[in-house]
Design a protein around this nucleic acid. Structure first.
Lengths: 211, 211
DNA sequence: CCCCTTATTATACGCTTGCATAATTGCAGG
DNA sequence: CCTGCAATTATGCAAGCGTATAATAAGGGG
């Protein structure tokens, strides 16, 4: 009833930017870019809408920043898996594949996030570049793991196999995110490791790390 | 300057409904559900916005109808491939896989369409049911083709292999739609057929139909 | 040929959107 | 303690949204 002006605390620029980006990502994951309105983002970040324009030139600017942040986080996650992975080439590869096919990577929200940005990626060249770089980064990581295996293959075969393995992983990731209940516990990781092994002509299943 | 009332022709109910659905699908493919506004849909269908409410109870009603139409078309396309496919089990499977990895199935617009609906599918149980039915229909088709191959496998292996093959196809489809220029002509079909063959333990590449 | 049904257009309303701008207030430096 | 900066809130606006309803005309049946 008093109509008092809302109290607030001054946060550092970095923390506020991160909070706004995190809020935007949550909303995009849940309901697509359409659900990520300026007001909804501000509300979830515990802030009033005007503040967004203090940290970002426009909503599109915030959206681009959020997309970049998401892709950077994905890259970092993938890299960190390899840091704690075993040394034997087969076990490394199996660990990498399995990590991509278990929570929190396989997750409806994660897939929703990815799908939510697709149309902007297709239209905005800057976002397309980020998308492509991240995709190729992942595939290069995978191709490196494959190349380290104790066998010899020519470059063309290596490339084709990396694309194929990447596709299995992406496909399983997609289906796990779209309809999680259709798969048993850790079934996706098992199928993924088995299939990657089949494509490469080696038995990878014994190296599947426990969930 | 005259402000004359716009001329029009009366079309049959079916044709108008189809035109509105087609327009909605185009717009969703290009810019997501957010781009498919009532006014934009009507405009593309060559009609004024009010007419939409004459054929659909609400915009959501139209959107659901559009989604169902898209999924039905996908099912029909898949079935029609098998009608004109060869009889030999290996050739049938190869033809089916290849058809899913060539235009017009692999296409940025097609992928945009799929991604545009994801969030509605995740929230609307009716759309989720359609989604799941279509996915399982495709996988069953694939599993049937695999089962027809001259080898014997137990049911559990068959299921896992069908999921894996489906995943390779989906993954390649995804990547072909997201970044078409990264792949050579018909490269996706070749990699897909090769990988499915590897997963199943047979050489399928000789059966790849010409583009 | 005219009339009646209804497919279609036209107009208006309330709400939400992104954005601009003005008013406040938290907080650090003297 | 107070003064100044800028982080934050508050308010307002034009445009676009989905929807409701009234006006019009197309075109087939008598």
């Amino acid at each position: 009833m008093t109509g008092e002006r809302r109290k607030f605390r001054r946060e550092g620029e970095e923390r506020r930017r991160d909070a706004l980006i995190a809020a935007a990502l949550e909303l995009v994951a849940e309901g697509g870019t359409g659900a990520a309105t300026v007001r909804a983002i501000a509300d979830r970040a515990g802030v009033t809408p005007g503040l967004i324009r203090h940290y970002f030139q426009s909503k599109e600017d915030l959206t681009r920043a959020a997309y970049r942040a998401m892709m950077d986080a994905m890259n970092a996650d993938n890299a960190s898996v390899l840091e704690t992975a075993p040394e034997a080439p087969e076990a490394r590869l199996a660990a990498f594949v399995a990590a991509s096919l278990r929570p929190p990577v396989v997750d409806p929200a994660s897939m929703g996030l990815w799908a939510g940005f697709i149309h902007m990626v297709q239209r905005d060249p800057a976002m397309a570049a980020v998308h492509e770089a991240t995709y190729l980064h992942y595939r290069d990581l995978l191709q490196g793991l494959i190349a380290a295996l104790p066998r010899d293959t020519d470059a063309a075969t290596l490339r084709a196999q990396a694309i194929a393995c990447n596709a299995v992983i992406d496909g399983l990731w997609l289906e796990g995110g779209a309809a999680p209940h259709q798969f048993g516990p850790d079934e996706l990781a098992r199928i993924g490791v088995t299939s990657v092994g089949a494509i490469l002509g080696i038995d990878l299943l014994p190296h599947l790390p426990k969930p």
